[in-house]
Design a protein around this nucleic acid. Structure first.
Lengths: 340, 340
DNA sequence: GTGTATAATGAAACCGGTTTAATTAAACCG
DNA sequence: CGGTTTAATTAAACCGGTTTCATTATACAC
């Protein structure tokens, strides 16, 4: 039943050569004669022999495997980045192992155990900014690491691909202010969260900056933090829209949350964009479908670029670390207009 | 710079025992005294030693890795199944490597090279039904394989988790007929495609069965095959809705395509559901957001279940292969009504 | 024809663990 | 107290490749 796998020694015996020669023949080393190579390859073909990957890895010290660490990949923006990674890697000879982080414990384990030479050749981290305690783990890792949509000022030895979320948040808010809005709400994730997600926090920061610059006082009742997801955003938005002096525009820290805001408006009979402008962030597919005004990020491209940098570094370890700030672009659709 | 990794022999030397004893101590074998174990563990702790994974794999013959093969995971339904897989696996000790198939060549390579004992301990295949030529490859694979949303009658030795798409397609069509519709269109994927995707084909089959059973003649102009995706579906739907005798209902083979149909209707000023009923398939998140009537599949659950079966089989290779047909459920929302 | 560089191959070490077989030490028993 | 189990440990083989080093065969030069 369990047919014994054939090994390089079997091939060697049948071809009448030594295992070393078989290895050389297979790996197209110049140290083997054409005649011998053909003889070996013939046997290889006949027995349908494929070298044992694990043995190769042990012998060469290369795993030919990369890891990607993603937070609980429920958010479409994360999935989209992941697509960029997977798609770009499809054309390389590397395997990709995916590590899903659903709680802080897993996260700690991952950062400690994954970036090791005996497990993978390189690591991509998506949307998880390292905490100060995690910095040394990553800084001293024995394999190259690339942060995508994540960053830490102390990690200058790593490639980092980010977006300037503060500027993005500011731009969205300035756009709304430019339309004439002064009562502008913000619906985002908790700034203080166990995963150290920074994007919502940064966008909120830009939001405040823009308000301040325009001389619009910050009103706490217009700022709400809510667990990520559509439903929580909807509930929060409903409460905000029930205020006596409700906002005329709401900036959501992600498209997913913007959808929640739209649903809240619909439920309460608040018309969009006549009574309420809504802006999201990310420009995932749903935004286009719903005609949502949003700040576009290069999600797919960020994954793609991360892989490129990682592969480049694997080829040439001396590659200078890059700190790339990807551009964003405001996509104006049907959910924004001047205030009533 | 490249700090040499510490090996089990280093630990052995420092603890004053043999490598074998260290191995046993680490793996909590009963063949080591409490005293020795403590001594060893102390050194392990001090040097922060972690056994080399690759060496372990070679020595034990277990890879502690599973592979999942997914078709070019752009479709939300596939992503959703994958989430079920990843999420369920998070609590196990297995790594997951993901293989993305974007063209028939990759597919052939995958089926040939992945299901090998030296690469992974088990394989999950999502939404790719094997062709007749691929059957022997899978049947004779040396590791357990589970098909999710895929099937082949000859593969009775594999676990298969499917949905009865014919019945599902029939049910959707019967529902529309029950509402009074007789001019019912179908928008689906090409039945004949290089990936051997069968779901659209099967749903179309159910569609025809239902029409026939109701004595409604099948009209070729109401049946269209179009590349997967929103835009192609939109264009096809626009053509269908421009017919002099346009359908009063359209059944789309997936929610993604149903969205395209909705967009087409909006563009042409056809009101949904008053002038046109639209039904999708899958019940991905967008369906709920848009209020789309659709046939719900247990997407996440299918991934979860696939992992469960695979893990069970890995634990006990004698496990009887299961052929599970997951139920579907028609979710009626706002895009369907009796014909005008 | 001898000496030497070159090409091709084989033998053996190695990667870093696990596991079996052999060995030693302690415990038990009549 | 000698003989036999039993427990704990070591030594060595093994997993299946790659690679270094030594060896042999061939070609070439003088």
């Amino acid at each position: 039943m369990v047919k014994k796998a054939i090994t390089i020694r079997d091939i060697a015996r049948m071809a009448g050569v030594s295992p070393g020669t078989v290895s050389r023949a297979i790996n197209s080393s110049p140290l083997v004669s054409l005649e011998t190579r053909q003889k070996v390859m013939q046997v290889v073909k006949a027995l349908n022999y494929v070298p044992n990957r694990v043995a190769q890895r042990l012998a060469t010290g290369k795993t030919l495997t990369l890891a990607v660490i993603v937070p609980f990949f429920t958010a479409p923006s994360v999935t989209e980045r992941l697509k960029g990674v997977v798609s770009t890697l499809a054309r390389s000879r590397y395997d990709l192992i995916i590590h899903n982080i659903e709680d802080p414990q897993q996260r700690a384990d991952c950062f400690r155990t994954i970036p090791r030479r005996d497990r993978v050749d390189g690591v991509l981290v998506i949307s998880i900014s390292p905490t100060d305690e995690e910095v040394p783990l990553l800084a001293e890792a024995s394999v190259p690491i690339v942060l995508i949509d994540a960053h830490h000022p102390a990690l200058t030895m790593l490639h980092q691909i980010t977006v300037d979320d503060v500027a993005g948040g500011r731009a969205v808010t300035e756009y709304l202010i430019g339309l004439g809005h002064t009562r502008i709400g913000f619906v985002g994730d908790p700034a203080d969260n166990p995963f150290n997600f920074t994007s919502s926090r940064d966008r909120a920061c830009g939001y405040r900056q823009a308000l301040e610059a325009a001389g619009i006082p910050y009103r706490p009742e217009y700022y709400v933090e809510t667990p990520h997801g559509r439903q929580p955003a909807r509930e929060s938005a409903k409460r905000m829209l029930a205020l006596p002096d409700r906002p005329t525009a709401i900036f959501a820290a992600s498209d997913v949350q913007a959808v929640g805001v739209l649903e809240a408006a619909r439920e309460l009979g608040v018309r969009v964009p006549q009574d309420l402008s809504v802006v999201g962030y990310d420009d995932v597919e749903i935004a286009e479908i719903l005609g949502l005004t949003t700040m576009r990020q290069m999600l797919f491209h960020s994954g793609q670029r991360g892989v490129e940098l990682l592969l480049k570094t694997l080829e040439n370890p001396e590659t200078e670390p890059e700190y790339e700030v990807l551009p964003t672009e405001l996509v104006i659709r049907d959910t924004t207009s001047p205030p009533p």
